[in-house]
């Protein structure tokens, strides 16, 4: 995909999504990240990433498709920026809003040409201020592209 086409995607809003962290799912997730002794009545802060990511209005494959990538392209999670404005509650319905917030093309000595594409996602409860703002940046290898 040409860089100009990608850059034109900046600002694209995702469909509004939703997410609810049920206790059983939460327990499985904390167990899988070596936090089996987690004993608090709010969600583990990793859900600051997981909840917006899982609840966003695109499936991951749709996102990849929009930016001209496939599941077998070796896409990696490159950077996470999470701002917590309050606790993430269990068994509460949250709305997820998001957009493509940036596109950057780079050349690495090992990776060759790759794109850094950032989604900015908001996890919203009853208050106007998002409980969490999550900026997730993905690394898209672009073997076919030139810088």
């Amino acid at each position: 995909m040409e860089l100009a086409e990608l850059q034109a995607l900046v600002g694209t809003e995702l469909p509004v999504g939703s997410y609810r962290i049920d206790r059983a799912t939460h327990a499985r997730a904390v167990g899988a990240v070596h936090a089996g002794d987690y004993n608090f009545n709010v969600a583990h802060p990793m859900f600051g990433h997981l909840a917006p990511h899982c609840g966003m209005g695109w499936e991951l494959v749709e996102f990849f498709d929009v930016v001209g990538a496939g599941l077998d392209d070796g896409v990696l999670f490159g950077q996470g920026d999470l701002t917590y404005n309050g606790p993430i509650e269990l068994d509460v319905d949250y709305e997820v809003r998001g957009r493509i917030s940036s596109v950057e093309r780079k050349i690495g000595s090992r990776k060759g040409v790759f794109d850094l594409i950032t989604l900015e996602l908001e996890l919203l409860g009853d208050e106007p201020t998002p409980v969490v703002v999550s900026k997730e940046t993905y690394v898209f290898p672009r073997a076919e592209a030139s810088a």
Binding site: A43, P45, G48, Q79, G80, L82, T83, Y84
Partner: peptide, 11 residues
């Protein structure tokens, strides 16, 4: 867990 206010992590 509520102590954590902001994370910026590069993978």
């Amino acid at each position: 867990p509520e102590s954590i206010r902001h994370l910026n992590l590069r993978f």
